[in-house]
């Protein structure tokens, strides 16, 4: 069974995704639970449109991109280790853009 989740990109992060802020996706079924650690490369390989180095650095998000899991700072949710649940809403906000 696939896992439906919602991704949102803002604060300038959406520029890497064809300016599309909201993406409703279905993560394919896999044996182990989906963690953010696996979600990030999936995003990079499936929906990111340009400059992957501005989204990821090593196996995590580029420092300066904030991540929220259901409106809570991912730093309180285990960061990369967080196990994704159906209908989770993951938000990526870039702090790296001026105005």
């Amino acid at each position: 069974m696939s896992i439906p989740i919602t991704l949102e990109f803002s604060g300038g992060a959406e520029l890497l995704f064809d300016r599309q802020k909201r993406h409703d996706i279905d993560l394919p079924k896999q044996e182990n639970p989906w963690r953010i650690q696996e979600l990030l490369p999936w995003i990079r390989d499936n929906i990111l449109k340009e400059r992957p180095e501005l989204f990821m650095q090593g196996n995590t998000v580029r420092p300066g991109i904030l991540v929220l899991v259901n409106d809570t700072d991912w730093e309180l949710m285990g960061e990369l280790e967080y196990n994704l649940q159906p209908n989770d809403r993951i938000i990526f906000i870039s702090t790296l853009h001026g105005g």
Binding site: G12, L15, L66, D71
Partner: peptide
């Protein structure tokens, strides 16, 4: 901290513009 400014704007739902020059 920038992180707190961005979080504050997000949770207060403030209307701001962000793009690259």
């Amino acid at each position: 901290y920038e992180k707190e400014i961005v979080m504050y704007a997000y949770f207060r739902k403030l209307d701001y513009f962000s793009t690259e020059c």
